[in-house]
Design a protein around this nucleic acid. Structure first.
Length: 616
DNA sequence: TTAGGGTTAG
């Protein structure tokens, strides 16, 4: 027998070294194998992990690999694991599961890595059955002290939607780390259990920046932006280092709340912290400034961006739309197309919004047809909603109705609601009744629709019908959401509900209103009592009208802010016609800019006019 | 070998 000259790879000739350590295909592997046999060199010179991954990726017969690997002194499981890892991370994770079966046929004892890789494959495939088998293996071999593995199991059950099993595993874990808690929180939020997630968050023995960020964004998604901001403040107080994802989450909360001051502070902070150039941060900033009524700032951020994504363009177009700058929104769209950026469905929602807020019916129609023809975007329910809104606002109620009837998808509450809105403006009782019949089925608990119908009846002085709608609401347990407006002065948010006289400055507010009223009447103001639904005396109606929350907030703002500064008010419902007319006059009387964000859009009152040009 | 969060629409 030929004496083995050397067992070191480096002692092989260079060509053999390359052959043995750099093979990339089964053929090259077999060549290396043959070469080693021929030169009587130990097979163990071949890097085993390479055998494993080549065999795995080329679907080479594993028994060949196994025979080959039998020459190695090291524990074979390492090599199996290398195979499993390659397959679990490849685009055919199912092969990892098949290989795991082979491993058991060969009676190879798995270790914790084996379980981890196979579990990874099961997670990618959401393979409930095999995942449970691995879970069993983990328990059988006593790997429950392996935190990584345990966390993977938690995540696996969470992804499969088996929260109760995840909970059982979590409760049984002999120890837990911050990842275990974060995994539970993630899946509780995803399953819609915000309270449960918050409970876990509160009980965590330690938190990292992910825990905080995740919870803040969960708050925003669950409609609790105020709580999100509170968490952020707490996080800052404790001194947790914030990252760009946290910034995005809290900026979204600011956008929802209209919390401009905090938003601006975070903008400064992100510049200082070096992630002021992050596209996603900048996109969120555009949205925040738009929703806080600072279109100028939003424009500046947009213009200064070095790199823009479709989200940046869409956010800017939508921002211009809700601020009533339809023509500019269309120009931005043209610019985007010229630069070769492909629009998406959301871009068209912004464009259709721009058209419907300014009555550009033809342009809207054109966009609706070109989105499919030129860009292959299939309209979704939101696009149909925008079109119905466009026709309805413009007074083309029959066209809107026909459009709904010809829709290829089932109209939802938003679609019928848009028609109802148009019926109110253009006083069409018949179609309003039809829309309400559909809405009663689709969205029976939404107070807004009942109110609008009752309003339409009241305007037509059909008081019995109006009161019938009221009774219906009562019978169905639907309560009218009270109008509520807020204004921030020196960092403090002041909230006013309609008819509110509980504020410490209530008397001053009332005096201010009386004073304004005198000036307004000199300019021809007549209270529009038609917006008051109740069948009461005219004087009584005026009293209700004068107590509207946005009027209270405005008077408070005029008393407590320096002359010349912009007054920003947020309202939870739409601004009524009377407040709209009053605010136009007041903006001229006090020579102030008044920005009102209602539930649909912005109104910027200046010099006696509104940016919506009374089309809303 | 483990978890994650973000923008546009409504």
């Amino acid at each position: 027998m030929q004496v083995i000259m050397s067992s070191s790879l480096h002692s092989l000739p260079w060509s053999a070294q390359t052959l043995v350590s750099n093979f990339n295909s089964p053929l090259e592997l077999k060549q290396a194998h043959a070469h080693l046999i021929k030169t009587n060199t130990p097979l163990s010179l071949i890097p085993p992990s390479r055998i494993a991954s080549v065999c795995a990726l080329s679907h080479l017969d594993f028994s060949y690999a196994h025979r080959l690997l039998a020459h190695f002194h090291q524990r074979q499981i390492v090599v199996w694991n290398s195979c499993l890892k390659t397959l679990a991370e490849s685009d055919s994770p199912f092969d990892a599961i098949l290989l795991f079966r082979r491993l058991r046929e060969f009676d190879v004892v798995p270790d914790s890595f084996t379980c981890a890789f196979v579990l990874k494959a099961c997670t990618a495939l959401l393979d409930d059955k095999n995942g449970k088998i691995i879970h069993g293996v983990v328990e059988k071999f006593g790997f429950q002290w392996n935190m990584v593995l345990q966390n993977m199991i938690l995540n696996f059950y969470g992804l499969c939607g088996e929260m109760s099993t995840a909970r059982l595993v979590f409760d049984k874990m002999p120890q837990r780390d911050v990842v275990s808690w974060n995994v539970m929180i993630t899946h509780l939020v995803k399953s819609g259990d915000f309270e449960g997630a918050y409970g876990f968050f509160s009980r965590m023995p330690e938190r990292n920046v992910r825990s905080w960020t995740m919870m803040i964004s969960a708050c925003v998604h669950c409609g609790k932006p105020k709580e999100g901001v509170q968490l952020f403040m707490e996080m800052e107080k404790i001194g947790v280092q914030v990252n760009e994802v946290t910034v995005v989450a809290v900026l979204s909360a600011c956008a929802d709340l209209g919390a401009l001051e905090l938003g601006m502070r975070i903008h400064e902070y992100s510049k200082r912290s070096g992630f002021g150039g992050n596209v996603r941060v900048l996109n969120t900033l555009i949205d925040m400034y738009v929703k806080c009524g600072c279109l100028e700032e939003a424009r500046r951020v947009f213009e200064e961006m070095e790199e823009r994504t479709i989200v940046s363009w869409s956010a800017m177009i939508q921002g211009l739309a809700i601020h009533g700058h339809a023509q500019e929104a269309l120009r931005v769209f043209s610019m985007m197309i010229e630069m070769g950026v492909m629009p998406n469905g959301v871009t068209f929602i912004g464009l259709l919004h721009a058209c419907s807020h300014m009555g550009l019916v033809n342009e809207g129609r054109r966009f609706f047809s070109c989105m499919t023809r030129d860009y292959e975007i299939i309209p979704e329910i939101e696009h149909y909603g925008c079109m119905v809104d466009l026709y309805s606002r413009a007074g083309l109620l029959q066209e809107a109705h026909e459009f709904i009837m010809n829709m290829p998808i089932k109209p939802n509450g938003v679609v019928w609601g848009a028609l109802l809105g148009g019926c109110k403006v253009h006083k069409n009782i018949e179609l309003a009744e039809e829309a309400t019949r559909h809405l009663a089925q689709l969205d029976p608990l939404n107070d807004g629709y009942y109110i609008v119908l009752s309003n339409i009846y009241a305007e037509a002085e059909r008081w019995e019908n109006a009161s019938r709608v009221r009774k219906l609401m009562k019978n169905r347990g639907v309560k009218k959401k009270p109008g509520c407006s807020s204004i921030t002065v020196d960092g403090v948010i002041h909230e006013f509900v309609a008819g509110d006289d509980s504020h410490s400055q209530a008397n001053e507010i009332s005096d201010m209103w009386e004073k304004l009223l005198d000036y307004m009447k000199l300019r021809g103001y007549k209270p529009d009592t038609s917006v008051v639904l109740l069948d009461v005396e005219e004087k009584e109606k005026e009293k209700f009208l004068y107590g509207h929350s946005e009027k209270l907030a405005l008077c408070f703002g005029l008393i407590n802010t320096p002359p010349g500064s912009v007054i920003r008010i947020m309202k939870n419902l739409r601004v009524c016609e009377d407040c709209h007319a009053a605010f136009k006059l007041i903006s001229a009387i006090v020579n102030r800019e008044i920005v009102v964000r209602d539930r649909n859009r912005f109104h910027c009152f200046k010099d006696g006019a509104c940016s919506c040009q009374d089309f809303w």
